[in-house]
Nucleic acid binder design. Structure first.
Lengths: 249, 249
DNA sequence: TGAATAGTGTCTTTCAGACATTATTAC
DNA sequence: GTAATAATGTCTGAAAGACACTATTCA
């Protein structure tokens, strides 16, 4: 099954550790950071500081550091923090992308994550971070990226859309407080479809994760003011799921 | 942020490849292979041939071989085939499990997959495979496993259950032909809930992925014989999704 | 014929979408 | 008052679950 001479290598557990050095696997993490800007989903990209593809826009990513990182998720948080200055309240593993072809340096494995943050969080992080500025690019325009970063973005997009249809995921794209019409617009932007207002409110009510902020209303508009809401405390770091989904209008 | 002397290591892209050899990441694949035996979900386990945990039951797994494997999924297929003799028609990435603590040999990363096969496929594979015999253990009794294999199984179980509620996933646990009552029993075993017969048949009809086998009926029982079905050709290697899920009775 | 399960028809309940109505603000 | 949108009440249609009834086999 294998070319001659490989069988020992392949079937020996202990030899792998030594032989492995001759054929190292490049282990990295990449983060697809989504935010909503002008009612459209954007991804955060950075110009690469090193070869390969130096100077090209790419997903924030970096090597896993076994000495420093407890696990891959810690590595993703560290990379995101150090390269963009952002600590995302929501970060979830998307999956791993691997193979001999995806990186010119050799066989590589990227454990990829996706994050959702409010645009305000990015703006404030930018000024603090010592590194270069984060580029926010509309998802559909994030093309021509190095490696398989476009595939990773597409997988993340699919996951976010699918998860948004039956969970509270999109609230992470909002700030601390928001009105129901605003939140509905966020869901619509993510799902790319309009949602029935009554159904949407029924779902939000059923999810039971929002609480009105007493006495706080969005004012200044030439119409009835909207009640401001926030996530209930117990959901600040956690998703809430609906049993039957949030459907298009 | 990092212990002294690490910063160069951490921020240098090119140095990683060389320094990496001193702190190699152990890259493996593991497969959670599910089958249905006596109306209960079972996982396939094997006694480990090498240290650590030699002789202990564990998930089929092994090192990624950059020279031989095109990507991690190929590695998973190779490992599954070589260790159990099984080529699963359905194999999907579950996620990656990583960290300094999960393997006594050091910082490790397991890209994990799950597979669903009919029990008959395992039986026939057993006789062909030159390796040791696969142990089928009821999922709830697969405990005391090495590494974080129990967590991997639980994640796989959750995925299979969730996916079964809105897709044709469980048909991979059936043989080539089956009756609708049999298929319903499979869904019920996976989901752990009874399903309304009429609704179930409506769903299967809506999925439009089964075709009756002309003139073939399950006979020999003291009651009306049941029509035998098989997957339509176009679905043999592919899942079918329902819009609204398969719900408990 | 009776027991057992397959397969189907149909009523009821539940839930999502449509639509209308009231509420509240700025101007 | 008027325009604009928030918020809510209610009707309708679609889909799921409950239940009953018919069909077909073996003993």
């Amino acid at each position: 099954m294998w070319p001659n001479g490989w069988s020992t290598f392949i079937h020996s557990g202990t030899k792998q550790l030594t032989s492995g050095m001759a054929f190292p696997i490049i282990c990295t993490v990449d983060v697809v950071l989504f935010t909503l800007k002008e009612s459209a989903l954007h991804v955060a990209l950075l110009r690469r500081e090193h070869e390969p593809f130096r100077g090209v826009l790419a997903l924030p990513g970096g090597y896993i550091h076994p000495q420093a990182d407890q696990d891959a998720e810690s590595a993703a948080r560290r990379v995101l923090q150090s390269k963009t200055g952002i600590s995302s309240p929501y970060l979830e593993q998307l999956g791993s992308f691997s193979g001999a072809a995806r990186d010119p340096r050799g066989w590589s494995l990227s454990v990829s994550y996706y994050a959702l943050v409010a645009e305000s969080l990015i703006a404030s992080a930018r000024s603090e971070a010592s590194s270069q500025e984060v580029q926010l690019v509309p998802v559909e325009r994030a093309r021509g990226l190095p490696f398989d970063h476009r595939s990773i973005i597409e997988a993340a997009l699919e996951r976010v859309r699918s998860k948004s249809s039956y969970s509270s995921l999109p609230v992470y794209l909002c700030g601390d407080s928001f009105t129901l019409p605003e939140l509905q617009a966020v869901y619509e932007a993510v799902l790319g479809e309009s949602i029935n207002k009554v159904s949407f409110r029924r779902k939000m009510d059923e999810l039971d994760m929002l609480e009105p902020i007493e006495g706080a209303q969005q004012t200044g508009k030439a119409h009835r003011p909207a009640q401001l809401y926030r996530l209930k405390r117990q959901y600040r770091k956690q998703l809430s799921l609906t049993s039957r989904g949030i459907n298009p209008d």
